[in-house]
Amino acid sequence: MFRHTPLRVAALALLAVAGIGYAFGASYFGLEILTEIAILAILVLALDMVAGFGGMVSLAHGALAGVGAYGYAMLQAQAGVAPPIALLGAIGLTGALAWAIGAVCARSHGIYFIMATLAFGQMAYSYIFETPVFGGDDGLGGISRLDLSVLGLDLMDSRNFALFCLAMVALAYAACAFVLRSGLGRSLSGVHESEQRMRALGLTVWRVKAHVFGLSGMIAGLSGALAAQHIMYVSPGLLSWTVSGEALVVVILGGLGTLVGPLVGAAFFVVLKHEVGAITPYWHLVTGLVLIAVVMSRANGIFGALEAWVGRRRAARQPQPLAKEVPGNA
């Protein structure tokens, strides 16, 4: 089950301070990067919730975020619905779709689960790519951002939008933590450890999985709807399976099943990509090698390694045995 250790609270506080501080100090392009990190962070929170705590390693989350983006674009730009309602609509739509995918895939495990989610993600991709109303390969434009002028905020301003996205990360994090600590989240942990045991206890396993997958999908949908507002344009590439693959990489890079880790991973990944990309067009090579190095180190990602190190230090100082954190069945 998810716990807020002092280390996690400290890391969260540090991330929040760094994010907000950077938002006020950054140049224009820095704000773009910050927004990109925030949007990716929301997506990987959603993915960590299912993969890290439920063992449901999904390759559909990129597509789910894409559905959220298209949902917002269609409602707001095509149907003319007010942005806040379009945002809620997109989140609801993605959640419903994710629930259905979760329900159907609930019986599959391991690689089969990964492939089943991939299949549904690809179906969504193909459907959107080939249906003319979605603009095909050329995508859809003319998307507006939320209007927060009642609060005196102009979201067309990059700084305001970056801060707004950071606030959304905080909201998504709170939602994930809330779900994981709720009865549903506890059931999910139980299912992750032993489905048979939970079934014997009278739990409907597929329903638990579907509910969590649906909630996770809503968060992914939020990420997508924010991406649509950020770029003010949607294209089928948003639903590509490589987006899901990258999100998974970020979760593992940060630390599976820690919620805080993926946030660190998102920041690390985006900054690495831009820094290396500024030097060479072969940034994939560097990212690939970093990924291999992190996994080879056998730590549970960057944050997992930090937790393990702090854990060892503490164990060295106080000799009594500590309850070992279960680092998600990676």
């Binding site: 224009y28 392009f29 603009g135 995508g139 770029i231 344009y233 294209s235 590439g237």
Partner: peptide, 29 residues
């Protein structure tokens, strides 16, 4: 994101390029 950087941060006078129509659609507005 790159187009915005070129326009707002580097303050370019003119932009040249764009291979795919999807990218053109995205930067058009």
């Amino acid at each position: 994101a790159k187009a915005r950087k070129l326009m707002l941060q580097d303050n370019v006078d003119v932009m040249v390029g764009i291979v795919s129509s999807g990218v053109l659609g995205a930067v058009r507005d």
